[in-house]
Design a protein around this nucleic acid. Structure first.
Length: 106
DNA sequence: ACATTGACCGGTT
DNA sequence: AAACCGGCCAATG
């Protein structure tokens, strides 16, 4: 089955849009939720295409260690103003702020 | 068909 | 903490 970039991009957008304020997901998490494990890099590509000015809150996506996008330092401030907690290392406190979708059903 | 490039990930020095 | 490494995979030249 060939990779469908369009459907994938749609999934990614849907998922990212659902991330609650004050929570974050990693690229790998988004890929997994989109039904495409091991496609973290493609998630980054989609977000790059979307752009930070769109409806989609791309700033709620960081890498697995909680670091912000390399070329987008302002992401840190955006998240901080939403209440996301950071570690002294400057990375997001993933243990605290990682979004678990199933939590919203309870 | 082959090489390089990433908003990546996990593990090992 | 930081550098390094191998794995990953669509996109691009």
């Amino acid at each position: 089955m060939r990779f469908d970039g369009v459907a994938f991009a749609r999934e990614v957008k849907d998922i990212v849009t659902r991330i609650p304020k004050g929570k974050v997901l990693s690229y790998g998490d988004v890929a997994w939720l989109a039904g495409a494990p091991n496609h973290a890099r493609q998630v980054g590509k989609v977000l790059a295409m979307i752009g930070k000015d769109s409806e989609t809150p791309c700033h709620r996506v960081v890498n697995a260690s909680g670091r912000c996008a390399p070329h987008w330092p302002a992401q840190h401030q955006l998240l901080h103003s939403e209440g996301v907690r950071f570690l002294s290392s400057g990375a997001v406190n993933m243990a605290l702020c990682r979004w678990h979708p199933e939590d919203d059903l309870i």
